[in-house]
């Protein structure tokens, strides 16, 4: 049996809304994944450290505060410094459509906006890990 997909779900910055991310965590658990939850108010630095220590397949960052254009560049910079820029990074939450292209250009693999069905999230993450191939 293949090892379960490991994912870190992280909340970054002052954003204190975590009901959404907890629903996603539950959906991923029920899809057989190992889900590590960071808790609220983490810094980009902390999130990257945790993702590396936990050796996750995917770093999923949930943001509803509008800080995504500030937070993601910091996360990618830190991943590069740590030599972990091959990590799959996914964004979830509320982000304006016009930022989606910019986030993708930065390296965010998928942006799963607020109306995405849980099954679509599961399928997307499985596809991203399958595309990456075994490590």
């Amino acid at each position: 049996m293949a090892a379960p997909i490991r994912i870190l779900l992280a909340k970054v910055g002052l954003d204190g809304h975590d009901r959404g991310v907890r629903i996603v965590a539950r959906a991923l658990r029920d899809a057989g994944m190992d889900v590590i939850y960071s808790g609220l108010h983490r810094t980009p630095d902390e999130v990257v450290t945790v993702a590396i220590q936990e050796d996750v397949d995917i770093l999923g960052v949930s943001l509803l505060s509008g800080a995504h254009m500030t937070v993601f560049p910091k996360i990618f910079e830190r991943l590069r410094q740590q030599g972990a820029d091959d990590m799959i990074v996914v964004a979830g939450g509320v982000m304006p459509d016009e930022d989606v292209a910019a986030l993708k250009a930065m390296g965010v693999k998928e942006i799963l906006l607020q109306d995405t069905l849980p099954q679509v999230i599961v399928d997307t993450l499985r596809r991203l890990v399958a595309e990456r191939g075994p490590r």
Binding site: P4, A25, R26, G32, M33, I36, Y37, S38, G39
Partner: peptide, 14 residues
């Protein structure tokens, strides 16, 4: 049932 898990211990060690 699913084999999945929520690993939440880190939340308390932030």
């Amino acid at each position: 049932y699913s084999g999945g898990a929520i690993l939440g211990d880190r939340v308390r060690m932030s």
